[in-house]
Amino acid sequence: MELDFLPLLIAATLGALAGGDRTAFGQTLLAHPIVAGSLAGWCAGASGPGVWLALGITCIAAARVPVGEARVRDWTSAAIVGPFVAGEAAWTWGFALLLASVVASAGGRAIEAVRELARRRDLRLEAAVDAGDLRALERTHTGLVVAHFVRGGLVTLAAVLVGRACLAWISPRVDPATGQILAFIWWLTPAMGLPILLRFQLSVGSSTRNLLKWLAGGAVTATLAWQLSERLVAPI
């Protein structure tokens, strides 16, 4: 297993920024799997495969709206880790997708741990509230915001290291049939995930019939655009 320092640093930095965006600062869409995953692929020098992986994760993550979740999932770190773990072989991207689901669970638990820390720190502020000590409130809040960024970076870094170690161990043991299946998981997950995305998006509005019209309009427009330009989908 090669340990190149720069990709690890980039992965951890992107994980920290997107992880902070996911939970603590902004919610600016940087944490969305399609944005974070595509940027990770770009940074890792695997732009096309990174987009395809991020698309699969985006479809899977669409099964839940991140509001009032009972079990928190960290699809942001999950989308970033893949491109920094996978290699040139297609099957490694299937492995990255399986790894992503583990990272989503582990990252979710890490988010919950930071939130539990926030609860405890928050409860200890009663004396500061009574004393009108604004600095104590600001210090605690700032510390927790920083903790979310650090969590994002650490989860991503740890996942990349563990993922690479697992891949190095698995590589010599993968037979052609297993490799083919792993490649299929990566190739076919976006197609498999589209009904999840579709179901979610049609369930949110007050009128499903109206949304179906828009959906059909989008599909027809894209089909016409594809017919008009054979080069619409560049080989990525």
């Binding site: 995305l197 579709l198 998006q201 949110v204 109206n210 949304l211 309009g217 989008g218 599909a219 894209a222």
Partner: peptide, 13 residues
């Protein structure tokens, strides 16, 4: 929501 539905249609294609 309508724009998102149209985008889903385009994404499927």
């Amino acid at each position: 929501q309508a724009a998102a539905a149209a985008a889903v249609g385009a994404l499927i294609v």
